[in-house]
Design a protein around this nucleic acid. Sequence first.
DNA 1: GTGGTCAACGAGGCCG
DNA 2: CGGCCTCGTTGACCAC
Length: 287
Amino acid sequence: MYGSPCPHSPSPFFFLSISKLHILLHPSLSLPRASCMAQDDQDMGLALGLSLGSGAHNQREPPSQAACTLEPSLTLSLPAAVSDSGLTTTTPPPPLLVAAGVKVKREMRAQEEEYEYEYERALYSVQASSVVDDDEGCNSRKKLRLTKDQSALLEDRFKEHSTLNPKQKVALAKQLNLRPRQVEVWFQNRRARTKLKQTEVDCELLKRCCETLTEENRRLHRELQQLRALSHPGFFMATTLPAATLSICPSCERLAAAGASPTADRTNNVKPPASHFFSPFAKSAAC
DNA sequence: GTGGTCAACGAGGCCG
DNA sequence: CGGCCTCGTTGACCAC
């Protein structure tokens, strides 16, 4: 399995070792990461912990004291219409309105954009004010490592639903102090990992099935040769013919060579009935 | 230095 | 046509 491409998987990343798969299945096995984030779910504000950094901080290392003490003063208000459960606290539009669905959708999009804007603004203010950053600026792609708590909550939500609607996405992003886009990307990547894992399982199953069938095929061939030897002592032709050219006549249950001349019966000077020469693919119509 | 992991991105397809 | 998805890839980060 690990040395050849799988016939039903075009992915180049298909063949992973079991140990890697284990890590895939159990993200909690990853190294503990320092969490310096505010976890107050009741607070509508966005507390800016280390996880909000652009990647300049290595989150697998303990947070610096300066960064932690900076945190409490950096809060901002989120759109009040967004609750933790993902439901809006504003009065929903009348259901009979034709454009109600569109309106709600646009409101959600607006909330998401507003949240993104506030997030970016807060992030920028942190970077511009006091948090130590490198000289590469904000444009370079930085690697963000989610904290253990963030990953755990995301995993929990993924177990409930592998996809998120916009409300859930915004609410979860707020709860995790992440951008909705980050939550969206995490779910996309998580679905991809799930699919990859399932493909591996399926391929392993097929491999075992193939091995079982191969062994069964060998066993049946041996059994067939033994039966030939018992029922036709001295009849060597049948045992020397390739197995693919042999078939069992469904009516008399005797061996016949598909497409071959009636050599066997000629040895006894008995012309076999025409029905004994049949294709192995048309056994039902043979006799 | 190298390989693995994973957040993030872009392309392209599907759907309401 | 916008939004969301999958797929393939990139790049940062880490362990060895």
